[in-house]
Amino acid sequence: MRHKPADTARQFAALSRRSTLAIFRQPAIIAPSLIFPLFFAALGSSSFSRAISLPGFPQVDSYLQFTLAGTVTQGVLFGSVTGAAALATDIEEGFFDRLLAAPTSRTSILFGRLAGSSVFGGLQALIFLLALLPFGVTVQAGVLGYVSIVLAGFLTAFGVGALMSVVALKTGSAEAVQGTFPILFILLFLSSAFFPRETMSGAYRRIADFNPISYMVEGQRSLSIDGASLTAMTQTLVIPTGIAVLTTMLALRQLSVRLAAR
């Protein structure tokens, strides 16, 4: 069935609104992805306050300033599972089938779900930036830096949400989506989210060197510590965009496979 662009846009807006509201109506689900990154930031600021003078650490006033980018990325990664888990729940409960039975654009079903978690990702980034502001943690790149980090939160949540949607569409199980959570945890730890790559060694350092999350975090960190630069902006925005494009293609492909199997 062909859909007029205006209809598709209307359907996308309605489904996006539904998924966004659904996230904010379940505070118990979103609270951990807001509380835990801030807890770890507070923990790190007390634990690693003396580590900032180690060789390899950038010039920062506090560990909190260093860890801002890691906190944002950690929260967004953990929160982005919510949208895909909701998509799997839609499949489990039959709502997905009812949407397919209705004259709804197929891509709107997927993008509508991802919109909710993406908006939440951007909001999370903003909350972390504002929550750390009273502790002297600022973004040296100014308004451009704040906007870029919030946008990076949006894009990262979209990209990771799309990746998780592949699992949701393949398995149709919210439990399976939640089960992939440790992979995000591992990816985050095997990056420079909490300590600079320059302080790591051996195989661990090489893994962090290959991990795109390292570069994404370092872009945001550079905006926060050094100010605006083309490299920092590219790392902050282009890497999550690239991830989002790649994972969206995978998710659309998995959606086609699921539709073809019906």
């Binding site: 690693f48 580590a51 180690l54 909490f194 300590f195 302080t199 790591m200 060694s201």
Partner: peptide, 9 residues
């Protein structure tokens, strides 16, 4: 691995 350098404190 992450906090490899911490022992230099």
């Amino acid at each position: 691995g992450t906090f490899f350098a911490i022992t230099q404190i």
